[in-house]
Design a protein around this nucleic acid. Structure first.
Length: 585
RNA sequence: UGGGGCGUCGUCAAGUGGUAAGACACCAGCCUUUGGAGCUGGCAUUCCCAGGUUCGAAUCCUGGCGCCCCAGCCA
């Protein structure tokens, strides 16, 4: 399959339904209603301009993708604009490695910020000037209290705070001190600039919030220019204002920051964007906080940020998810204000839906069991035609070699078959996909271990290509691979990263890491068409699931396949139910 | 007697005073050379609870109850 281009055509192929680009197909939500009203009133000259403001301190995960779909998606639908803005106000945690990965992930999802790439650090000078203005207006002050003292003065959730003894310094002294903070005259943590608001406010964010801290840290963009760095609240709203953002859509935990967001903008008297909050994405069987994902990476529970088990965009990409599947998933999830946990089965459903259309079918035996077809001529090889995708005839037909010795899936044979097992067992007949009917005549076992080593079967020459000449039916159809022509490969089966639905609920989320989240299957045997696959190529392994060639560990002589998602497995369900019944008795 | 939010099917989620959309999951059946895909049908007499207003309430009012977020010089 060397003629297939890298990253494969699948990435470009349209999904069957639910085209994400048509605004009409998207259900409304409370944010769209707010925007509709703003537009009716002609607010902001009827502009819609949003932004996505990641902090470059980690890789993007699917929760960020939701934020993008909300911010960017809404701007697109309203024919507005959207900016990418790195919220880089804390140099000790941030790194250019992350800005690169973030941009790659956003592009992969299909969003284009064109020339509107910004950094909060672009505004450090403006922010500084504005801070000077607020000092002159008597609205802020330099506080000499230590971090611990500030905490003590803040009060508690139920008790008001106390004013700092430095709260009423003169404008001149504040100006002098702040300028010297900027110049680097004071050590880290020695002084902060605070807004003078209300130490008795019920909302703790309004109890004289810190605007600047002294940090003698080198910034990935501004170098050593600054010894003071703005806090999130002071930087964010003003950045939105500078960029002319009309609707600043963020997650729920910022709801009680909104009064402060508004306060700064009002004191400055500058353009005032509107902050609107929505619930962030949660999914079961995974974690969605950067902190926890970082722990997984740093403690080696997964290989890297792009480990296919991670809910990161880079992980999902490596696993073989199509970006449009993620977008469609997020559209289905919707946008609301209530906390919720989305079933990961919905994501997998969306992934299957696209791959079903896009992925060519292929036969791969993961756990081989040798079958010798005793009445098939030795040395004979037939090239059998096989359709590449029954969902899309334009994907054509390929040819597969058939011979006397083949591999079938070990799980497809049972010496003592349970009820409703219509695969192969002694004396039973099944169809080999695209080939012949075979019947199991004899089971060969290892004398010592008793392990089944080989099946001796016969075939019916009059069932070529899987159709019976006499109209007789077989219930089971197996996939197979000719021994002499098979290409060996490694397959990685991924399962949920956690064994419980909400690992967040427990004391230590790590105790619920699924020991079977990765199952490496080596010695797999694949049809010869899979000889020269390229990283990123996707296939459906018949009766198994969707797989994609790993982009990290694949080498020219040893392909590695990641299982993107399994096929729905009705038999597994039946068998599980049968076992359940057996245990009841 | 802090502040801010939120409660509609197992899970998401529409619904904006006119008699509970849709999706996933689940169940049953049809079809099938993937136990895949597809197709058909089932799946909230009731919207956290209790009162009230109304001809009519998930929607309005009152009072409860429950859940989430906030005490970083993180974002």
């Amino acid at each position: 399959m060397a003629n297939r281009s890298e990253e494969s055509d699948a990435d470009k192929r349209k999904p069957t339904s639910g085209d994400v680009s048509s605004a009409e197909s998207k259900p409304s939500n409370f944010i769209r209603e707010i925007i509709d009203k703003d537009l009716e009133r002609g607010k902001n000259d009827s502009r819609v301009h949003t932004r996505f403001p990641p902090e470059p301190n980690g890789y993007l995960h699917i929760g960020h993708a939701k934020s993008m779909c909300v911010n960017f998606g809404i701007a697109e639908d309203y024919k507005g604009l959207y900016n990418l803005r790195f919220d880089d106000t804390n140099p000790v945690k941030e790194d250019t490695e992350y800005v690169d990965s973030i941009m790659e992930d956003i592009r992969w999802l299909g969003f284009d910020w064109e020339d509107r790439l910004y950094y909060a650090s672009d505004y450090f000078d403006q922010l500084y000037e504005w801070a000077i203005k607020l000092i002159k207006d008597g609205k802020t002050y330099v506080d000499d209290l230590s971090a611990e003292q500030i905490r003590e003065h803040r009060g508690t959730l139920t008790e008001p705070g106390k004013e700092s003894p430095y709260r009423n310094r003169s404008v001149e002294e504040n100006l002098d001190l702040f300028q010297r903070m900027k110049a680097g005259e004071f050590p880290d943590g020695s002084r902060v600039l605070r807004a003078k608001i209300d130490m008795a406010a019920g909302n703790l964010n309004m109890r004289d919030p810190v605007m600047y801290r002294v940090l003698h840290a080198s910034h990935h963009r501004t170098g050593d220019k600054w010894c003071v760095y703005p806090m999130y609240d002071w930087a964010h709203g003003q950045s939105d204002s500078i960029e002319g953002i009309t609707h600043s859509l963020c997650s729920l935990e910022f709801e009680d920051h909104r009064p402060l967001y508004d306060w700064y903008l009002d004191q400055l008297g500058v353009f005032h964007p509107q902050q609107i909050e929505f619930a962030r994405l949660n999914m079961n069987y995974t974690v969605m906080s950067k902190r926890k994902l970082r722990v997984l990476v740093e403690e080696g529970h997964v290989d890297a940020w792009n480990d296919p088990r991670m809910p990161t965009l880079s992980g999902m990409r490596r696993r073989g998810y199509l970006p449009q599947s993620i977008r469609r998933f997020l559209d289905k999830v919707g946008v609301a204000k209530r906390d919720s946990v989305v079933d990961i089965a919905l994501l997998e459903h969306c992934v299957r839906e696209d791959l079903n259309i896009a992925a060519p079918r292929v036969m791969a035996v993961l756990k081989p069991l040798k079958v010798v077809i005793e009445n098939y001529p030795e040395g004979q090889v037939e090239e059998l035609a096989a359709i590449n995708n029954p969902e899309d005839e334009s994907m054509g037909v390929r040819t597969i070699p058939f011979s006397r010795e083949i591999y079938i899936e070990r799980d497809d044979f049972r010496e003592d078959p349970p009820k409703k097992f219509f695969r192969l067992s002694p004396g039973k007949e099944v169809r080999l996909k695209h080939a012949y009917f075979i019947k199991c005549e004899r089971v060969v076992k290892d004398d010592k271990t008793g392990e089944i080593t080989e099946l001796r079967c016969t075939y019916d020459p009059q069932t070529k290509s899987g159709e019976a000449h006499d109209g007789r039916k077989v219930k089971g159809t197996l996939h197979w691979v000719s021994c002499d022509h098979a290409v060996p490969a490694e397959v990685r089966i991924y399962n949920n990263l956690f064994t419980v639905e909400s690992p967040d609920d427990s004391e230590d989320f790590r105790q619920h890491i699924n020991p079977q989240s990765l199952e490496v299957v080596s010695g797999c045997q694949m049809e010869p068409n899979l000889k020269d696959v390229k990283p990123g190529e996707r296939f459906q392994f018949l009766r198994h699931g969707y797989f994609c060639v790993d982009s990290v560990d694949t080498t020219p002589d040893k392909p590695v396949f990641n299982r993107t998602v399994s096929l729905r497995d009705t038999w597994a369900k039946i068998e599980k139910a049968q076992k359940g019944e057996a245990n009841q008795k």
